[in-house]
Design a binder for these strands. Sequence first.
RNA 1: GGUGACGUAGCCAAGCUGGUUAAGGCCGUGGUCUGCAAAACCACUACCAUGGGUUCGAGUCCCAUCGUCACCU
Length: 294
Amino acid sequence: MITYKGKIIVIAGPTASGKSDMALKLAKDINGYIINGDSRQIYKDLNIGTAKPIFDEKISKNIYLLNGIKHFLYDFVNPKENFTLYEYQNAVGTVLNQEKGIPIIVGGTGMYIDSVIFNYELIPNTKEPKDLETKSLEELQSLAKDHINEMNESDRKNRHRLIRAIERGGINRKKGDMLNHIYFVIDIDKEILKGRVRQRIDKMFEDGLLEENISLRKQGYTYEDKGMNSIGYIEFKEYFNDKISLEEVKEKIYKNTLSYIKRQRTWFRRNSESIWTNSYEDILYKASNFISKE
RNA sequence: GGUGACGUAGCCAAGCUGGUUAAGGCCGUGGUCUGCAAAACCACUACCAUGGGUUCGAGUCCCAUCGUCACCU
């Protein structure tokens, strides 16, 4: 649960939409600070593939400075660690309660962002995971039979969700009070975005994405680690097993990015209150109004 | 010019001893969503090249046309 009662600005949107730049500008113009709303940029050592901002300096464990703007919750989780939504929400809550200024939460992970904005009621995980991973879909469905009525067609065939329902003993959709917020979604023509994704991936390779993967392996990370199951990394697994070429890796990253973007858009479309725009002036104007009104 | 093979969704492709709803994959689109979320999952997408014929019934057999490919003179 988030207890913060102040205002908060969200800048969400698909990968490569330019949301980070928008947020940085806005933070300068309204004297705000930035909180990471991206489930991959939280990880240490995953830099190029996650398009993590390059900061000017590190202030403390998870506070960085870029252009004089404070950035929170970047680069602070071990990729081997099993980081959860609860911990994320908690970490954001702590920042919100401590920091002065207008928080701007920026990222592409809809569930992370919404867990804060819509104040999901989460409880720390106490139960040890049962050995459900190896069970078949049918077995899981039978174990979850008490909750299956609450689940939809899609979730009933989804192992993750079934396991979750069994462990938790049901479905939880509780929310606390919604935060006082304004929710921007960067809206870009899909064809233009495709072009940008291409460029961005080319740039990642130029910047040493392959070398980063090699180095991660040397440091002892494997593609089974939570954080490593990310676009820009997991595609290299087959490359190192001599299964596919570097060109194929690149193509897979491209395809995976596009389908990720599609899912992101689907998520953000659910929130009918959100403001879809690609104009910084628009964002600045509306954000300023939002801040100044009582 | 001759012979042969082939022509099934945007792409690849099964079906070819004729018979209820034409496999599957990719791409695409829409969607689900309170602890792996850059995850996982669901749904949708075919006038079977064209025109005839045989048959109770044809993507499936026959003929012609068009097209593609291979080989031959």
